[in-house]
């Protein structure tokens, strides 16, 4: 590999490692409300509320209150929780909420 190309790859790798990456992006107020409820449900390992919340999210998506991407993120968290991975689902919901914070 030419030294200059090697240096370029090195710098790109360093930047990507240092900058980190966020899994979630800004969401609508409605999606934020769902993420907050999801955090609470997953934190409490509440299967009944989880089922109800999944239906709520489906309805909101059907009524176009959520974008496809928002609904996907929320469904993924629901699926993680339904698989019994409550801790991971709680962390995902937290990350989704934290992605909405500005100026931290």
């Amino acid at each position: 590999m030419h030294p200059s190309r090697f240096a370029g790859v090195f710098v790109c790798c360093a930047i990507s490692v240092l900058s980190g990456c966020s899994r979630y992006d800004k969401v609508s107020p409605a999606a934020y409300e769902y993420s907050k409820a999801l955090y609470s449900v997953c934190n409490c390992h509440d299967e009944t509320r989880l089922s109800n919340l999944a239906l709520h999210i489906d309805t909101a998506e059907t009524e176009s209150k959520l974008t496809g991407r928002e609904a996907d993120w929320l469904h993924d968290i629901v699926a993680t929780a339904q698989a019994g991975e409550w801790q991971e689902a709680t962390q995902d919901a937290r990350q989704l909420m934290e992605a909405q914070v500005e100026g931290m």
Binding site: K36, Y39, S40, R49, R94
Partner: peptide
């Protein structure tokens, strides 16, 4: 919250 559950915010709650 939207499921009718009280909003409790312990230490570092992300709100």
């Amino acid at each position: 919250d939207i499921t009718g559950f009280p909003i409790i915010h312990p230490i570092n709650f992300p709100t």
